[in-house]
């Protein structure tokens, strides 16, 4: 158990023992060392399995809307999760006073695709030091710089620190460089129309409609998704290329002004579809057009909840 983990365990145990929260959402060990799984602790004696490291891929905020408003929830939050919670509070999915956040400045998440691609599937444990990842096999250990293994969306991360956690454990990290964060999408936007379209078709074609992206996203909490609607049927729900494209367009567009750039959708995708190319474009537009960044506080409504006479006008062409 790392130093951070023991500090967190102590903190969580206190919360649960003092009955300050009804449930604490965090991670626990799973069979695969690469995939710690979300856990819902209600008693402090369950915390033996507790784990917290850079392989904890899920955005735990995604579980918040599943609880009734009155439930008191505890959570370990990174920067992106904190922002997601903030925005869920804006959208009235939970009351801020019923959420207790233990903030941890985020070192970035290790992308298991990158890990497996580089080191094969035989590893038995993955540990981390400050800037390095240690991969253990049965007979040996390899070290690799953390930066090379981080998930793309973490490489772009601008706000790694929790913004409004009730308790923060660990040292704050420097803010990321916003221009760096935007280079990738900007480069994609600079391609010509046909190239962008070809890219999109190729990506969307791989989709198998497992909806893992939807399940992983903290903002996709509708009880009935628009794709599942019977009447009117908004779009095809079969595995047809056009239907896939429609799904990805609307899924991304429903995140406009709501995406916290956590990358959970992309990490969840079994087909490795680069979904952040879509949401980051929208985030970028929200930033430039409306100076809005999602989740920076728990009061500001997203741009589509408001309108202004002075909006940048591209209406009349």
């Amino acid at each position: 158990m790392t130093d951070l983990e023991s500090k967190l365990t102590a903190e969580i145990a206190n919360l649960l023992d003092d009955k300050k929260v009804d449930v604490f959402i965090a991670f626990k060990k799973a069979e695969s060392p690469l995939h710690p799984q979300p856990a819902f602790f209600t008693e402090s004696n369950q915390l033996g399995d507790f784990v917290y490291n850079s392989l904890c891929q899920n955005n735990l905020a995604a579980f918040i809307p599943r609880y009734p408003l009155s439930a008191r929830i505890g959570m370990v939050v990174r920067g992106c999760e904190n922002r997601a919670v903030n925005h869920l509070v804006v959208e009235k999915q939970h009351a801020r006073e019923n959420i207790f956040m233990i903030g941890v400045p985020c070192e970035g998440l290790v992308d298991w695709h990158k890990l497996v691609n580089r080191f094969g599937e035989e590893m038995i444990a993955v540990d981390e030091a400050k800037d390095e990842i240690m991969i253990s096999y049965r007979d040996r250990q390899i070290r690799a710089p953390r930066q090379e293994l981080l998930h793309d969306s973490c490489l772009r991360c601008v706000h790694p620190n929790p913004l409004s956690a009730d308790v923060t454990i660990g040292e704050l990290k420097p803010e990321g460089d916003p221009t760096l964060a935007r280079t990738e999408v900007a480069a994609f936007s600079a391609l010509d129309n046909a190239a962008r379209h070809a890219w999109f078709r190729k990506e969307a074609e791989r989709c198998i409609r497992c909806y893992a992206c939807r399940e992983a996203c903290p903002m996709c909490y509708c009880t009935e998704c628009f794709v599942d609607h019977g009447v009117p049927r908004w779009t095809e729900s079969t595995v047809s290329p056009a239907g896939m494209r429609a799904w990805h367009i609307v899924r991304a567009f429903h995140q406009a002004g709501r995406c916290v750039s956590c990358g959970a959708c992309e990490r969840a995708c079994p087909m490795d579809i680069k979904m952040t190319y879509l949401t980051e474009k929208l985030n970028e537009d929200m930033r430039t057009k409306y100076q809005f960044e999602c989740g920076m506080d728990d009061k500001t409504q997203p741009p589509f909840a408001a309108f202004n006479l002075d909006d940048k006008n591209r209406f009349e062409l």
Binding site: R196, R201, L282, K289, F304, R314
Partner: peptide, 23 residues
Amino acid sequence: EGNLGARRQLDQFADFLDHIGYE
């Protein structure tokens, strides 16, 4: 102000469609 709301959403949607190749 319905038209102003429409402007925000639809203008953004058209921009987004353009982003993925629908002119």
